[in-house]
Amino acid sequence: MGNVWQFFQPPLYWQQFEELCAGLLTEVYGVPNAQQVGRPGQAQNGVDVFGTSARHGRIGIQCKRLSDLDENNNPYPGGPITRALLRDAADDALSFVPDLKLWILATTARRDTKVQGWVEELNNEWEQMGRKRIAIVWTWDECISHLNSYPELQRRYYRDVIQVGSPKDIDEIILRTIAMAFARPAFEVPLHCETPSEFFHALKDTQKALRTGELVDRESRQVIRKAIGGYRELDDDLARTGLGDVDKHLKLLRTQLEQGLKDGTIVTVGTCLDIRQPDLARYLDELRQRCLDDLNNVLRYAGIPTV
């Protein structure tokens, strides 16, 4: 493939990623009949996109958009690539009819040498079993390369989508989204003035934005901004490490509040929190301030306005 000269955001939703994979299959492998398989929720036997290439035979793609976490901060189906996920997806695709010559696991995750090793291991096993099928993985790095090689795909799928010129631009989008998540009353109003339910909602929303890049509106609960991913997707090592500390402190703050409500050291009085131990109140305030201080250090480092 040619040099990568343009970076692209992964599609925000899995439906868009499937559509993009159908376009990639058409262009990259010359598959004129590439199509999505079934309807959402139907059993698809490990294949979301299917088509036949004159040169390569029948090809199936399993599409995994990987950034999103559920309300418990666990990956949605298709979460981070593990050896077990790869194996399960490959086994599912074995029952797809008609049989495939090439099976592709397409993901929005970045290239990982561990995953490449697992794919090689899988292909060796299939060869020893006499199975005439090959597995490959399209990470988002491969998708970017294909997009740069086929301008028609750029025009078709990215005409109205933000394009960015470098990893630094991607980092800025992620950091600005996370900064917006912290610019809310939960990190401004004194703890004893907070409404417990709203405060916990705010902490949960902020954790989600930090870890996934998805920010929801406080009132409507609708997604109002979604970046490429959470802090783990940052290209800059120092920024990623700094926000990792924010994530740890935020998790500890939430855990301490939940424990206090459970053991009675924190109680609800009317619509406010009553923290009955002064030392605990100071500690919680310090944790909250530490989150902001660490975040603002990263924002200053990146040249972005602080919260």
Rank of each mutant, 00 (worst) to 15 (best):
D245M: 07
R83V: 01
Y158E: 06
C193R: 12
F200P: 04
V269I: 08
R55P: 06
D141C: 10
G213H: 01
T82Y: 06
K251H: 03
A89L: 05
Y158C: 13
L147M: 00
E198M: 06
V37K: 04
A89W: 04
E152N: 10
P80G: 05
T195H: 10
D293N: 11
Q128E: 13
A93C: 12
V216Q: 12
F7G: 09
D217K: 04
V269T: 07
V47H: 01
F17L: 09
V119S: 07
D92R: 15
L292D: 04
D263N: 15
N148D: 13
G2W: 01
L69P: 00
G303L: 06
I136E: 03
L257V: 04
W126N: 14
R225E: 08
E19S: 10
R211I: 01
E120C: 08
W118C: 03
W140Y: 10
Y157A: 08
K204V: 07
L122D: 08
C63A: 15
Q36C: 14
E127L: 14
I228Q: 12
E125K: 10
T52A: 15
L284T: 02
P80C: 03
D171P: 07
K64F: 09
L69K: 01
H249C: 02
A109M: 07
R110F: 11
T271I: 04
G270F: 02
H201Q: 15
P80Q: 07
L243P: 05
R221E: 14
R288I: 12
L299W: 04
L257G: 06
E125H: 06
L203W: 00
R176N: 01
W138S: 03
R276G: 11
P190V: 05
T108F: 08
D171H: 13
V298L: 04
P190R: 05
R211M: 03
L250W: 00
N3P: 01
L215H: 07
L122F: 11
L12Q: 13
G244E: 03
D68T: 08
G230D: 01
Y158A: 11
A186W: 00
A106S: 08
G30R: 12
Y150M: 01
A135C: 07
S53E: 14
R254W: 01
C21S: 11
Q44T: 13
D88N: 12
